[in-house]
Design a protein around this nucleic acid. Structure first.
Length: 885
DNA sequence: GTTTAGGCTTTG
């Protein structure tokens, strides 16, 4: 409703209308009283449209979308002062047949409406929205919600709110079993509910379900038995504090606690006596769900359970515990996370940060280079490490460097750190800030450690909850971190904009062939000590005398648009560079190979047989060839040669066997497939041969040969892990992967393919074909990058997600071998109420592997690159603005 | 239907 053209806030409470008008805000929000039927208050000219039917060209005139709020994000203030709020609503009464991804949708609300809604809407409320526009959701691949967003801004945007019934005064902890109203029973038949026991009513050896506020916790650590062990202490309104010990083999089954004050719901824990008190230990069927402890915060359950239930009573219980805990002293003394800007010397604190780079110092110490967008007022410890021992960028701009903290983590945390990737968001628990000099292990005298600087140490062990936790993207802490980083980057942009582009010689895509004859203004933040002599980039490239030139470069756009195209296969032997083949092409090569006549003489060193693939009794069985030598050494499964498998099946099997080589009959003998296809599958990583340098022959592997693979793999382990982490899954496990690739990768007992009892061994009449050693030397020479497949994510949103992009640049930097392509991070920014991609990315190629391309770490600033003449001949500039100086 | 650990008074 709009009154006299003045935008208003209109509420009805208990049947009474409350109208307030604000001249300067366009707020159209209606809070409907519970007593009145909400539908009757939504204007009749609005037609409800099911969420499933929403698409970017939907006609939104006089349409309304209804849904229950299942998530409310924080109110975000962007650099321009605009406000943005994201809410997820769920269409509860959608038809069963509807694609469930389309039943929940993001609402992006801008301006004053965002602020009002943020204050008045809570999870559980039901909204009718109108006056929206439909946009493509850039996060659909990630959040698995509706492929569209509803955007609410401007005068037409309007939200009708039906408030959730206020909590009843009774305690929901007491008697859940009888709390259903008859109406609820009739509407939705529910699974049996759980009864929760208060912490003062625990009976010895009873198996119970409990709720509690976390007052202490340790991250899961490896026990001496088979499991990881989590230790936590919880309390509730009874003020009893109960220790809990959770043993689970899988980390994801442990409570996902980020901080004290979080709320846990545990099912099936057993009460054990210990030291004159009671402890809860998980028992069969255990499951745990964790919620943020923030009053009014989101209700996203953190759990790995697939069938968990969460109803109104649960939400109420969580809110009651939140409200209760907020008034207790028990949590006020806990160490809250502290930004770098507020770190005090000689204190222990938690740091929420992003990992930028890491480097191993020695077997007991790893350096984590982190930042949180704020600057520590104290001088920070500098640790000098070899650039090639660093994972992630080895240097940063001076400005960014001043915001980076060096964290030294010890002992058990070293192991955990191995799994961290640059770009990850972390909470580091119980960091100590130590002033003064600090000895860092294994640093030579040429690598001095500065004194009187603040050093951050994460000591070994798990005492005081010491540990590191990966934070998910949707955590409020990460969102806040991102805002701080955006602020940093925005500030940086302001510095850059002071440069006058017209004063610079700009070169797009290719180096210029001439200079206008005018003197180029060489003002720059860097001073060059050499004599300045202006030359063109062409002259730089043609120069053969080895003179060093300085080139100033700034990225203005990026290529290729599809990120996976940024990865190239590079052959060190012949310097060939080629694209990573896409999945369709590869599938075709495998498919063609399976159709070949199978008559073939296996080599004499192999034992051959068949492999049973589950669920495919009618199809011809793939052949498998194993090395007799490896078998006698007990390494039968180290390396298998597979014939007659599709790409998908090969990928499946590579999750169960460490080294899988696809082969096909060729001229009656065993041969590798066309070398366009990978010749070795190692987990999620694929290794490619070079068509020009490698022979497509299969030779007998030896233990030495297999070790050679291992050496190669070990040498490249970090970058291989990168590939595997990116393309296998995000959950850290090795089980699922579906939509991105169109097939599922599985491992573990459940889906493991086995070589069944039908394996036939026929070792006679086989023929050798070559020596063993060269084959694997070829392997080490020709393998390059793990192959990403063409995923819908890449093709539709090439610049989405800094994580992916970080991965790419990371992979490229790690690829070593002279594969000199460099990529920069891009970032998505929100400005003036709209998401606007600010692309700062480029790829620089060198056709000569000997040329080491210098890295530019600051995507928005001019960076100086130094090359000597002969090296420059091999350089190609793409989509960067260059100026010689 | 077995085992693991059972905070903590740190500290390279």
């Amino acid at each position: 409703m709009r009154i006299g053209g003045i935008s208003c806030l209109f509420e009805t409470r208990g049947g009474k209308a409350v109208i307030s008008c604000r001249r300067h805000h366009n707020i159209m929000m209606y809070v409907m009283s519970e007593g009145l039927g909400p539908v009757s208050q939504v204007p009749s000219h609005l037609t409800r449209i099911p969420m499933a039917l929403l698409c970017p060209n939907t006609n939104c005139n006089n349409k309304t979308v209804k849904g229950e709020v299942i998530h409310k994000g924080p109110l975000v203030t962007v650099a321009t002062g605009d406000l943005i709020l994201k809410i997820i609503i769920h269409e509860e009464d959608a038809m069963q047949s509807v694609d469930c991804q389309r039943m929940s949708i993001n609402l992006i609300i801008f301006g004053a409406l965002a602020e009002s809604v943020s204050h008045r809407v809570n999870p559980g409320d039901v909204l009718w929205v109108s006056g929206f526009t439909v946009g493509k959701s850039p996060t659909a691949n990630k959040d698995k919600l509706h492929p569209c967003n509803l955007l609410l801004s401007g005068e037409d945007a309007c939200i009708y709110i039906s408030k959730q019934r206020p909590p009843e005064p009774r305690s929901s902890l007491a008697s859940r079993g009888s709390s259903l109203t008859p109406a609820e029973d009739l509407r939705t038949p529910r699974a049996p509910r759980y009864t929760y026991v208060r912490l003062d009513e625990l009976k010895n050896m009873a198996v119970v379900n409990v709720y509690g506020v976390v007052v202490f916790f340790k991250q899961p650590f490896k026990s001496r038995g088979t499991d990881y062990c989590s230790s936590l202490k919880i309390t509730d309104q009874t003020e009893h504090k109960i220790g809990c010990t959770i043993f689970c083999e899988n980390l994801e089954d442990h409570p996902r606690i980020f901080q004290t004050g979080d709320i846990v719901r545990m099912h099936r824990v057993k009460v054990h006596p210990y030291n004159n008190s009671l402890t809860l230990v998980n028992t069969f069927g255990f499951s745990v769900v964790t919620f943020s402890g923030t009053v009014g915060g989101g209700m996203e359950p953190r759990t790995s359970s697939k069938n968990f239930q969460l109803d109104e009573d649960d939400r109420r219980t969580v809110e009651e515990l939140r409200a209760w805990a907020a008034c207790q002293a028990l949590l006020s003394s806990v160490s809250a996370a502290v930004p770098l800007s507020a770190v005090q010397p000689n204190t222990y604190f938690d740091l929420i940060c992003q990992l930028l780079a890491k480097a191993s110092i020695d077997s007991t110490c790893t350096l984590l280079r982190v930042w949180d967008g704020t600057r520590c007022p104290h001088a920070l410890l500098k640790v000098i490490v070899e650039p090639n021992s660093t994972e992630g960028p080895s240097s940063f701009s001076k400005h960014k460097e001043s915001h980076i903290a060096n964290v030294l983590v010890y002992d058990n945390h070293v192991e955990f750190s191995k799994h961290l990737k640059p770009g990850a968001f972390l909470r580091i628990y119980n960091l100590q800030a130590i002033p003064g000099s600090s000895k860092v292990p294994d640093l030579t005298s040429s690598q001095p450690v500065e004194s009187d600087h603040l050093a951050f140490h994460l000591h070994g062990g798990t005492s005081y909850g010491r540990g590191i936790r990966l934070l998910p993207e949707n955590s409020p802490d990460v969102q806040e971190l991102r805002r701080a980083m955006e602020a940093f980057l925005d500030h940086q942009d302001e510095d850059v904009s002071e440069l006058n582009d017209s004063e610079l010689l700009e070169v797009w895509s290719t180096p210029p062939e001439f200079i206008d004859g005018d003197v180029v203004d060489c003002r720059t933040e860097r001073c060059c000590e050499h004599q300045l002599q202006l030359v063109t980039l062409t002259q730089v490239k043609q120069n053969t005398d080895g003179q060093t030139h300085h080139v100033r470069a700034q990225i203005v756009s990026y290529e290729p648009r599809q990120l996976h195209r940024a990865l190239k296969l590079f052959c060190c032997s012949c310097s060939a560079i080629k694209d990573v083949p896409d999945e369709e092409l590869l599938a075709g090569i495998f498919s063609e190979a399976t159709r070949r006549p199978t008559a073939c003489t296996p080599p004499p060193w192999a034992l051959s047989g068949h492999m049973d693939l589950p669920g495919d009794a009618s199809a011809s069985k793939p052949s498998v060839h194993l090395s007799t030598k490896l078998m006698t050494e007990g390494k039968t499964e180290q390396l298998i040669f597979l014939m007659g498998c599709s790409l998908e099946e090969t990928q499946h099997l590579s999750s169960a066997y460490p080294n899988v080589v696809p082969v096909a009959p060729s001229c009656g003998q065993l041969a590798l497939l066309d070398l366009t296809a990978p010749f070795l599958f190692r987990g999620a990583n694929r290794h490619y041969g070079c068509k020009w340098c490698s022979e497509a022959a299969v030779r007998e592997p030896s233990a030495a040969g297999v070790e050679q693979i291992d050496e190669t793999i070990i040498a490249e382990r970090a970058f291989l892990q990168c590939g595997s982490n990116r393309y296998l899954n995000q959950s850290g496990g090795s089980k699922q992967h579906s939509s991105d690739h169109g097939y599922t990768l599985s491992s573990g007992r459940q889906h493991r393919y086995v070589m069944g009892p039908t394996t036939q061994l026929c070792s006679e009449s086989m023929k050798a074909c070559g020596t063993e050693r060269n084959q694997w030397q070829n392997v080490s020479h020709s393998l390059s990058v793990s192959a990403p497949s063409q995923s819908p994510h890449d093709s539709s949103c090439p610049v989405q997600g800094s994580g992916d992009l970080n991965d790419v640049s990371h992979v490229l930097q790690m690829s070593g071998h002279g594969s000199t392509c460099v990529s920069w991070r891009t970032r998505q920014r929100v400005r003036r109420g709209r998401a606007r991609p600010a692309t700062r990315s480029a790829i620089l190629w060198s056709s000569n592997p000997a040329v080491k391309v210098q890295t530019m770490h600051n995507e928005a600033q001019w960076t100086r690159l130094d090359w000597t003449g002969p090296e420059a001949q091999h350089l190609t500039f793409k989509h960067i603005k260059c100026s010689v100086f």
